[in-house]
Design a protein around this nucleic acid. Sequence first.
RNA 1: GGCGGCUUGGCCAAGUGGUAAGGCGACGGCCUGCAAAGCCGUUAUUCUCCGGUUCAAAUCCGGAAGCCGCCUCCA
Length: 478
Amino acid sequence: MSLRIYNTLKGKKEEFVPLEPGKVGMYVCGPTVYDTSHIGHARSVVIFDVIFRWLTASGYDVNYVRNFTDVDDKIINRANERGMSPTDISEKYIKEFHNEMDGLNVLRPTIEPKATEHIDDIIKFIEQLIEQGKAYYVEGSDVFFSIESFGEYGKLSGRNPDDMIAGARIAVDSNKRSPMDFTLWKPAKPGEPSWDSPWGPGRPGWHIECSAMSNRYLGQSFDIHGGGKDLIFPHHENEIAQSEALFGKQFVKYWVHNGFVDINNEKMSKSLGNFTMIKDVLETYHPEVIRLFLLSKHYRSPIDFNENSMDEVITSLDKIYTFLDRAEKAGVDLSISPDAGEEWQLFAQAMDDDFNSARGMATIFDTVKKGNRLLDKAGETVSAETLSKLSEICSDLKKMGEILGIISQTPTAYFKGKKEAGLAGGDIDSAMIDQLVMERTQARKDKNFARADEIRARLDELNIILEDGAGGTTWKFS
RNA sequence: GGCGGCUUGGCCAAGUGGUAAGGCGACGGCCUGCAAAGCCGUUAUUCUCCGGUUCAAAUCCGGAAGCCGCCUCCA
């Protein structure tokens, strides 16, 4: 079974064949760092994180590039609003972004280039386009890319330039030769950050940075380029135009685009005031709950963020850790074995099918069920044979978790964390709970079940659930 | 106006030609003093609707309805 990827360029799934055997070049559009990141950013980042992990696990040497757009109108505006420098703004939000993504257990890409650190590359790129007659400088205005110089313009988004010109909703800049031409370099207004260039002091347009930086780190052609669906047009369309016009060869082999996150069935928008920030979500939910949620639907479909779905995911994650806890207590060594069992094969098939994490999750639950069944059947004394089978199951499970970026804790640490989180907000402390549990244990010994149930009911009101196991009574938050 | 997508059980959600994964919930059972957890069983003869192609369709084609996204900054 080999990897298949849905390619936006072709509109269908294709077998993944890298340009160079064993190696993958992947570029993903990162954030424009002018504001706090929201759950939609998290989805994109987590999805490509999983893709990165899967490609790596599949044996590829992955060169994963994710940029920061750190020069842009929005950053300048924000800087002016706050009386800060654009650099202060971009640095502040890059730091936030890193903190939050680390919090979400996202691996750092191989390299994270910034637009402002590649101005020379950008200027060189533009100069070459002008030399080839594919871009033009309008005295006193911008440098524009000429759409007419690139016959395949529109191939990614399936639009043709004539239709777009006809339906254009924006006022046409009279400096442009064609209404669809776009800016490569714009002159700086007084007080704006700027760099010297053959066209006077100015700064790059949005699209050119990705062409210049991907060329710098991945070459003229590379394997995978990703980002949110909204970037298909115009951003990625324009990147293709710039890069293919200049190099005369295919820019990217596979285009991968993720769907959006809705909030309670509504689009996230400023007007609705429902922007859901990652840092807020991280305060409410365990990072692995957030990841599991983001991966519970296929990456191309829209996903709806709501309390009910999150609650379901919490239950699911508990189920996985509960099993591992059971297994560990039964004597299973929870370390990962290099050997892959049959459960892993099923998971791999799902991931090879266009990174179908939702299907992969079904395998995880099937695996948990299989393990629980074995434990139920084994009873008090677990045979060596069962133990070995359970080790394989747990190892597979943890390997699956490594791909999705979950199950990174020991069951003990996970449940301890949950207890701490549960205790943090309320006015109960664990000593008090332990005291009640002990009292109840004594009551049960004395066959005073009325008193035992009374204590349990009282704890239940505090969202504490008791479990009477062979090794004594344990408790957890519901 | 142009382009694209979606519609699967109470809810979430896989499934692109071979006879409906998985999760949550609900109900019954095992276990338990009773619970919880776990396990077993039940919960869609059917995939928005109407036609068509096919031995065979949730899956392909045509049409209808509803919902959504992009075309302007946007993950």
